[in-house]
């Protein structure tokens, strides 16, 4: 079974969200997602300053197996992107919840956080897809 940390929130498109407590969230893809993708070889992300809307595709993860879109789980402005993924995309595989993070967003509406899945809800979702 893949690792689904309790303290994070999730969406059905396999992104995780961490509330940083200062109006921003950090976003990445889950352990389950990286396992399905296999070795990640390129990650394309939006730029700092970009405005994104929940549900938009905001980037692409290319793995040895397939290209998959990355979706914005929430609405806001990009305040940071993980530039280390340029050189070391394999961190998405080795540390999906840590060094393999994608972007940080300043949220437009903090209430959107309440719509996200918790760890149990996400685990159930993964189960239903398999």
């Amino acid at each position: 079974m893949s690792n689904i940390p309790n303290e994070l929130r999730y969406v059905a498109s396999h992104e995780w969200i961490r509330d940083e407590g200062d109006g921003t969230v950090t976003i990445g893809i889950t352990d389950h997602a990286q396992d399905l993708l296999g070795d990640v070889v390129f990650v394309e992300l939006p730029e700092v300053g970009d405005k994104v809307t929940a549900g938009d595709d905001i980037g692409v993860v290319e793995s040895v197996k397939a290209a998959s879109d990355v979706y914005a789980p929430l609405t806001g402005e990009v305040v940071a992107v993980n530039e280390d993924l340029e050189e070391s995309p394999e961190m998405v595989n080795s540390d999906p919840y840590g060094d393999g993070w994608f972007i940080r967003l300043r949220l437009t509406d903090m209430d959107e956080l309440t719509d996200l899945l918790d760890a149990d809800g996400y685990a159930e979702h993964c189960e239903s897809e398999s």
């Binding site: 070889v41 390129f42 394309e44 692409v60 290319e62 397939a66 290209a67």
Partner: peptide, 8 residues
């Protein structure tokens, strides 16, 4: 040789 992406 340049740019990101994977030929498939």
């Amino acid at each position: 040789e340049t740019g990101k992406g994977v030929l498939r």
